[in-house]
């Protein structure tokens, strides 16, 4: 069998033809194909205005996708990312509008509340041994309810904090390169993606995330404090949900407490389309970002083409199934 072992030799810097790379390549090709298709067949799709729309829509789902990707690679799942995002937005609203504190404290409020909620989910999963699906299903409702309670079920506006706009819709790059308009939120998303990617591939936490997702018991028997790292993973994921909360509320100039349900499914879909395995142990941040772009290009493109809103949902479902099938097919070939 040494022969087989040698033929499967894979170099460290994964060569171009590793499955992960292939998958991202396939996803990227699909994205480009969609862009070309809609540019040709949907009038005004290619307009810069519309591109800005797509990017802004992707920013929120992309960041949530990254949050859930970390958890999925660690062998878990987080259904609460959508409503945790909403609760963090409400927290920012309370700090900034209700308490009248300065912007940095509002940002800190969103990030810390996200980390706390994520950490809480992680603790329930690790210490009480409640399956992640159930624990985060509970957390999803808890966060949703708390967002309504804290806000009094009314939107909180950020009119007192004009600088809040700079988090997402404003385009700071325009002052550097006149004429170019890219909302800040897009840069925030790429920033989050890069940091998460570095954490995943270069940090101790990242290494443990992969080990937990691949074989938790082997990691435990290696002396790894499995519970601790699980909690840290969920906390980090929750903190990233806080970023998404800032983005979405900045874009709407308000924290909308009723928002959030359904976002978790889009986030998970982005991760899956990008090649993250729901079985854990496998996935990339870049893939998730591409997945998020595919979803928003599709949604936007179909809308511009005048396709009925409801059909978009159907198409999204089909895309998810195709993406997973491509994954399976690629894997069989290797």
């Amino acid at each position: 069998m040494t022969d087989t072992a040698l033929t499967h030799a894979q170099p460290e810097k994964p060569g171009f033809f590793t499955i992960a790379t292939m998958q991202k390549a396939v996803a990227f090709v699909v994205l480009v194909a969609l862009l070309i298709f809609f540019s040709v067949f949907a009038a005004n799709f290619a307009a810069w205005n519309n591109m800005v729309n797509i990017m802004q829509a992707t920013a929120v789902n992309g960041v949530l996708g990254v949050a859930v990707t970390l958890v999925i690679i660690s062998g878990g799942i987080d259904l609460a990312v959508g409503t945790m995002m909403t609760l963090t937005a409400v927290m920012a609203g309370i700090v900034l509008t209700n308490l009248g504190m300065p912007l940095p404290l509002g940002i800190a409020g969103a990030l810390l509340s996200g980390a706390a909620m994520g950490g809480f989910s992680g603790a329930i999963i690790a210490k009480l041994r409640i399956p992640p699906f159930i624990a985060t299903l509970g957390m999803m409702q808890i966060a949703r309810g708390l967002a309504l309670v804290f806000s009094g079920a009314k939107p909180i506006y950020f009119n007192d904090t004009p600088s809040y706009q700079y988090i997402s819709p404003e385009s700071s790059i325009t002052s550097l390169i006149p004429g170019l308009e890219i909302p800040n939120g897009v840069f925030v998303m790429f920033g989050v993606a890069i940091i998460a990617s570095i954490i995943l591939n270069r940090s101790l936490l990242g290494r443990y995330i992969f080990a937990l997702g691949s074989n938790e018991e082997a990691a435990r028997l290696s002396g790894v404090n499995v519970n601790f790292w699980k909690i840290v993973t969920y906390a980090l994921s929750g903190m990233i949900c806080g970023v998404a909360g800032l983005l979405v509320s900045s874009r709407l100039n308000s924290a909308q407490p009723a928002l959030g349900l359904g976002y978790e499914l889009d986030a998970i879909a982005a991760a899956v389309i990008g090649g993250t395995s729901l079985a854990g142990g496998r996935g990339t941040v870049l893939g998730t970002i591409i997945g998020a772009f595919i979803m928003s290009v599709l949604t936007n493109g179909l809308r511009v083409m005048g396709v009925q809103e409801e059909w978009k949902i159907v198409v999204t479902g089909v895309i998810i199934i195709i993406a997973v099938y491509v994954d399976i097919a690629l894997r069989k070939k290797m």
Partner: peptide
Amino acid sequence: KHFGLVTPMSVRDNVTMASWQ
């Protein structure tokens, strides 16, 4: 395969796993 190794990870990561810190 179940308790000793994280088989999808590299030899390098498995050898060093208990000592990553």
